[in-house]
Amino acid sequence: MVPSLKRLLAALRRLPGVGAKSAQRIGYHLLRAEKSESYELARSIVNLAERVALCSICGNIAETTADENRRPVCEICSDPERDEERLLIVEEPYNVESFERTGVFNGRYHVLGGLFDPLAGIGAEELGLDKLRRRIAEAAYNEIILATSPTAAGEATAAYLRELLEPLNVRLTRIAVGLSAGADVDYADEVSLRLAVEGRREMH
């Protein structure tokens, strides 16, 4: 194999979900394709690396401006129309997209960029929780919604946040767990059913 192709395949294989076979297929495809296709791909990758950064306020992804002195701010944080009273805390930037698609939430977000994982050395410092605490202390939110997944790591992170934010005297809520919409009670597992009963609410 020629060195240039070898180098590309090695780079491709570092991408998530790309194994040796896929890398080879992509590599040979690019060899055969129009040069413009390769240039467009390369430009968009470089552009992504140069123009997209994490929002300095919430940790979501943000497009940077030409002005290097301005810190990156995402679309949601720079939108004056959004509700200033509620903050929703999620794990990853793509979780923001999911909540946005529902249209149910019009407040602000905070993206942790991961969950507690002591084995991998990820704790409060790596997740920037001190910065989050300061952000909440300095603003006047009426409600903080903890929207990490109801997995062990998600629950542990939520538990930590509760301890951290409780002294700030702000209302803390946790997203509901139980049955998913459209689920059949007969098919639900015991744990979900139990949580669904525990989290029941008054009918109005």
Binding site: P118, G123, A124, A152, A153, A159, Y160, E163, L164
Partner: peptide
Amino acid sequence: ADPLDRAAVTAWDRPL
């Protein structure tokens, strides 16, 4: 973990 963050330990108490 060194240094020990007590709250990072007790965070696991609930799911555990």
